[in-house]
Amino acid sequence: MAEVALVEAVTMALAWEMAHDDTVVVFGEDVGINGGVFRATAGLQEKFGKERVPDTPLAENMIAGMSVGMAAQGLKPVAEIQFMGFIYPVVDQMISHAGRMRTRTRGRLTCPMVLRAPYGGGIHAPEHHSESTEALFAHMPGIRVVIPSSPGRAYGLLLASIRDPDPVVFLEPKRIYRSYKEEVEDDGEELPLDMIYTLRDGTDITLVAWGAMIKETLEAGEELERQGVSAEVIDVATIYPLDMEGILESVERTGRCVIVHEAPRHCGVGAEIAAELAEKAFMHLLAPVRRVTGFDTVMPLFRMEKQYMPSTKRIVKTVLDVMAES
């Protein structure tokens, strides 16, 4: 078993699936000889050839649109958008076609494609390179949105995403691309989509997060433990469709919930989770549901990005406030 970082787990999953399914084609800008700007496709062109790992012309909506065409005609495209900041041109093809190909044709044509993109802040990147706009895609009917938070889940969830018969936007938290390694067996085993992963058991409060924010949320869990608060930590993993059954099960047990995300607060995925809890868990709640999120501002350039990102300190403080309210 190899010790790999999250980005290496992505490469490993791509290589596994390409070796076992000839219809998988990996492409994007600079994914070939360069192996991607984050090296997520490193070595794949060498191993599988230029035809299966081609560099595309530089046009993001083209990448999405050609994926729709390829997917409808028998391939499994796995395309990379270089940064989430450059993903916005694809909105047209994703909402107008990828998400509706199956239903508009009553299942005659389908769209088994994966659009991968690194997302999120915290790496001192230039403007446009740090946003978390997962809610945009979560709002598009017909598209799964999946975000791993560890090397193991990156491997298993990416395999599941490629094998899924419908389109998946797979967002990779680039801040933790190389922050640590863990043992991941390269055995082609996928992890289930559409379900939460409970990373820490607790009895007093449920902390709900995803992506890179799992790091701060788990740290907050440890700190809270020292302060006598037992926090359960849930990695949502599939942003759409939400595993509300899983989240509800936990919140009904703990009676409290704090949701953590990097994205702006307004209409963020946390708002949806909070609304679901208000509808379905109200009578179990001992305190109001709170959110720790980015601000409803443009992501500041990197000298101040740390102020924008939810910190372990903010999470702990919010949890202690919630505990004090009940």
């Binding site: 649109g65 050609m66 994926s67 409808a72 391939l75 495209p77 076609h97």
Partner: peptide
């Protein structure tokens, strides 16, 4: 492909289909 109302978006589907035909 079925009818395509958003203008010119179908051009990319044809290009993608052609990628598939060539690849296969």
């Amino acid at each position: 492909f079925s009818w395509c109302v958003p203008i010119a978006t179908q051009c990319l589907h044809a290009a993608g289909a052609a990628v598939a035909f060539k690849y296969l």
